[in-house]
Design a binder for these strands. Structure first.
Lengths: 238, 238
DNA sequence: TTTAGTGACGAACGGCGTTCGTGTCAAGTA
DNA sequence: TACTTGACACGAACGCCGTTCGTCACTAAA
C-alpha cells in the first residue's frame, strides 16, 4: 500500500548521509578556516558544510571553544619533530621554530585559537616535551627552562597571530595575493609617515623607508635569533 | 492648552541629555572594557550606557573596529615617556617596556584590540618615536632598529594579550581575584601533567613543579631580558 | 516485541554589528 | 520673522552568531 502523497517522507536520502563524528567536524572546521578565514568559521557554517543543522554538532563537541582547541591541536600534529640532540640544542630549537612557523603559515588563522591555551592536546604536549627536554638536557635549570620554553612559544604564536590578522585584512579588502596587499599596505604606511610633522617625529619621519623594510619572514627570523641568543647567553657552559 | 494625554511627549527630559561625542564614547567604551572585559564590550552596551540606541554611535565612530583603535590609543596615552638618553638605551628601553606592561595590566583587555595595528594614533606614534630614536641614537642601523622595535612591540602586546585571555577565563569562571584563579589553574595543570605517561613525556612529567613556577610578572621580565640582551649583542660597540 | 537510549535536528532565544529612514532642532538665509 | 538646510539622534529592522530545548527516527539490548 503506497504512502499517502501528502505525507512527505521525512528523510529523503538518509542512506547516503555520512555519520557525523568529532574528527569529521574538526576536519571540516579546519578546511573552512584555511579557505575562508577565522571570521568565517562558525558553528553554523560547519554544520552547513556537513548538510545539517548547527545543533547536531553539539553531540560531538561541547562548543565552539572546544572545536577551536581541537583544530589547533590537529594543526600542531603537522609539526615534525626530529630526534632530540642536546649538543645541537640551538640549531634544533631554531629548526623547530621554523617548522612551527611554516605550519602556522599554511594554516594562517589557527593562531587565533591558540594563545593562552595551556597545552593539553597530544601534539602540543609532544612539542612541549621536545622543547623542554632539549633545554633541560642541554644543561639549563628546570625553572629557567620553563620560562624559556614559555616565552619561545608565546613568540611563535604571537607572530602567527599578528600575521593572521594581516591576512584577515587582506581578505576583507578583497585582495587575492599577499603581494598586492603588502604593496598597498606599505604604500599607505609610507604616505602616512611621510606626512608626519618632522619636529615631533624626527626619527620616524627620517627613516620611513627603513621602517617598512623586511617582510614577515625577515621579522620573524630576527626576533627568533634575538631570543635564541638570549637563551644561549644564559645556558650554563658545557 | 495642555497636550492631549495620548500623545506621549517624545523626549521626556531632553534638556539634561548630554551631547554625544567621540571622546565620550571612547571613554565609556574603556570603562566597560575595564569593568566587564572585552567580550562585554559591544556597540549596544556602549549605547545603553549612554542611554541611547546603538545607531547613535555611528555618527561619531565608523564602527566597532575604529572604536577599538581609539580606545587602544587612549590607553597608550597613559604611558609616560622619559627624556631619551641614548647612553642609557638599555635601561630606558627596559623602563619603557615595564611602563607599557603596567598600563596594559591596568587595562587588561585592551591588548585584544592592539595586535597588528600599524600605529597611527598620536600616542602610538610617540611611543614609536621614543623607541626608535633611542635605538638609532644608540648607534643601531636604521633597518635593524626597525626590526628590533617591531619585535619588542610584538612582545609587549603579545604578552598582554595572553594575560587578558587568562583574565577572561577567570571572569567566565566567576572568580573574583587573580589569586583564586591562579591557584585553581595551577592545581589543574599540575594534576594533568602528573597523570601523563612517564615514558612518552619524561621531562614534562618529571618537572611539573618547575613548569608552573613563576607568575606572569616573572615570565614577562624573563622574556624582556632575553630580548634586550639579544639587542645588546647586536648593538655596535660605542 | 518491547524498551531504553542515542544521535540528528527544526525551531527558537537572546545577543551581535550595522543600515535605513525618519524625526527633531539649531543655525543660517531671505 | 519665516523658511530652508543640515547635522545629529534614534526606532526599527536585517542578517548574522552560539547555544538550548524538545522531538523524532533509529538501533541494540532485554
Amino acid at each position: 500500500m503506497p504512502a499517502p502523497p501528502w505525507r512527505k517522507s521525512r528523510r529523503p536520502a538518509q542512506v547516503k548521509r555520512q555519520q557525523l563524528s568529532q574528527e569529521l567536524i574538526v576536519e571540516t572546521g579546519l578546511r573552512i578556516l584555511d579557505a575562508e578565514g577565522f571570521d568565517a568559521l562558525s558553528m553554523r557554517r560547519v554544520a552547513q558544510e556537513l548538510d545539517t543543522g548547527p545543533a547536531s554538532l553539539y553531540a560531538h563537541v561541547s562548543g565552539k571553544e572546544e572545536l577551536l582547541e581541537l583544530i589547533y591541536d590537529r594543526v600542531l600534529s603537522e609539526v615534525r619533530l626530529p630526534e632530540p640532540d642536546p649538543a645541537r640544542w640551538k640549531e634544533q630549537l631554531r629548526e623547530y621554530a621554523l617548522e612551527v612557523h611554516r605550519v602556522f603559515r599554511d594554516h594562517a588563522d589557527v593562531a587565533r585559537a591558540a594563545l593562552a591555551n595551556i597545552p593539553t592536546g597530544e601534539s602540543s604536549l609532544l612539542a612541549g616535551e621536545f622543547t623542554y627536554g632539549l633545554l633541560i638536557e642541554a644543561g639549563m635549570p628546570p625553572v629557567e627552562a620553563s620560562l624559556a620554553m614559555d616565552r619561545l612559544t608565546l613568540y611563535l604564536v604571537g607572530d602567527a597571530y599578528e600575521g593572521s590578522l594581516h591576512w584577515a585584512r587582506m581578505r576583507a579588502a578583497g585582495m587575492s595575493g599577499p603581494e598586492e596587499y603588502f604593496q598597498a599596505f606599505v604604500a599607505q604606511i609610507i604616505a602616512y609617515y611621510e606626512g608626519l610633522p618632522r619636529e615631533r617625529f624626527p626619527h620616524l619621519s627620517k627613516h620611513v623607508k627603513d621602517l617598512t623594510a623586511g617582510d614577515g619572514e625577515d621579522r620573524f627570523t630576527y626576533g627568533l635569533e634575538l631570543l635564541l641568543d638570549g637563551i644561549e647567553a644564559r645556558m650554563p657552559k658545557a
